[in-house]
Design a protein around this nucleic acid. Sequence first.
RNA 1: GCCCCCAUCGUCCAGCGGCCUAGGACGCCUGCCUUUCACGCAGGUAACACGGGUUCGAAUCCCGUUGGGGGUGCCA
Length: 467
Amino acid sequence: MTTRVRFAPAPTGFLHVGSARSALFNWLYAQSTGGEMILRIEDTDAALRKPEFIDAIVKPLQTLGITWDEGPYYQSQRKQFHVDAVEQLVASGNAYFCNLTRDEADALAKEAGLPGGYHGWSRDKGIEDGPDCVVRFRTPDEGEIVIDDVIRGEVRFNTAELEDFVIRRSDGSPTFLVANAVDDADMSISHVIRGEDLLNTTPKVMLLWDALDLGEKPTYAHLPLLVNEQRKKLSKRRDDVSLMDFLSKGYLPEAMVNHLALLGWGPPDEKEIRPISEIIELFKLENVNKGSAFFDVTKLNHINGEYIRALPVETFIEMAEPFVYGVDTEITWDKDNYKPEVFEMVAGDVQQRVSTFSEIPHFISWLFTDAVEYDTESKGWNKGLRKAKKAPEILDGIAEAFADVQWTGEAMNAAVSEVGDRLEVRSQVPARIAITGTNAGIPLWDAAATLDRDVVLRRLAAARALL
RNA sequence: GCCCCCAUCGUCCAGCGGCCUAGGACGCCUGCCUUUCACGCAGGUAACACGGGUUCGAAUCCCGUUGGGGGUGCCA
């Protein structure tokens, strides 16, 4: 039997990293078992039926290289099957109509001194269907549902503790629980791989599955949650988790996928950064962890840096385009001042130093602006220039030498070293700070030679004035 | 409250009863390389939550405690 998995997101906006991880693990499992993957949009709630949200899911998946064999299917388009299932459940006595609002049910429970949840007040009341009626599933008063989870082992639920949950809203639309059971059966899903936050809904789906007589159930695997620094489930509201945002900030899809694969799973040989083909080969669903994992951007940065450095420099230059022309990110220079040939010259040096593409401007902005800003509060400025021995003399000496030095990197470098030798101090760092504004950066002189002589002289004077 | 899940360095992962004086990676620190920074290289820092069992032997199995998380919607 070929394995068939599905990624079934609710279209509630942009795809976030947690969903992407779920999609990825489904995909990894399908790939590693030679199975098939289905994309199914869970839009049973009318409020979710927005076409722009579909793009927000499909596009990032494609960018990440997560492919599917069928779909996207839309649950909204399969509504009739779900409606039929609800009718069947009512006819068989497994479900009944209920006209209580949530508030009324809560009030009744409070009055009766019962804990939260719905206690089956409308059971056996013979309520007829009407405009304000929902359909509820009659959960068994006794018995146990056992989920044999690939990742967690056996998980047991006492059916008496399951409330009579709603399977059809008062507007006539069936809920995702019904859609889940019916669609997973129709689509011959063999493995349901999803986040642990859905674990509690699984016994309900299984109850429906049996009541609907849908045949063999899929195998379940509940992935550990991705959490933030406070160890709370990643949420769109409070966390920065839009996948597309990461991509447009200059994270490579391959690096993102690699990082995501390492959250909740690890290769037995401990080699973390590796091509997706190897990850597929090594991936075992039963080896996935149970504990939640912190989505650590610091580690992502490292992985991304590794991937960037591995790029051919021509590719790096090509991919850097949006970031040097300010398409998606801010640039600090006037677009007319940008010189592509200068960037191409230093690209290899920049490539070695960035962990995301969005850091590129930081390393090259001094090449495309007239004046640089000096952060006189920074450690670099203070340690490298202000407190440097004979700093004023160094800058004066360089300015003097630069007035008529041959304008090549080699000659400039030599002149600066000569000033340092004469004063018996280190002159390179002070020069760098005066010219670029910072003590850290790409090899200086060949790049600096692309600037006009008077621009450099002005910067030397400006820095000198701040001492 | 009730139900469910989880628990190895700060973080991610390895470990599936003896190979563990617990390994790798990120981070952090030190040194080397270097006219800066980074890369690279060589080191260092740092964990089996606690308490009971089981066993000749437990990070690994069982129970409890504590801690964390998820769910508890006419969202999915």
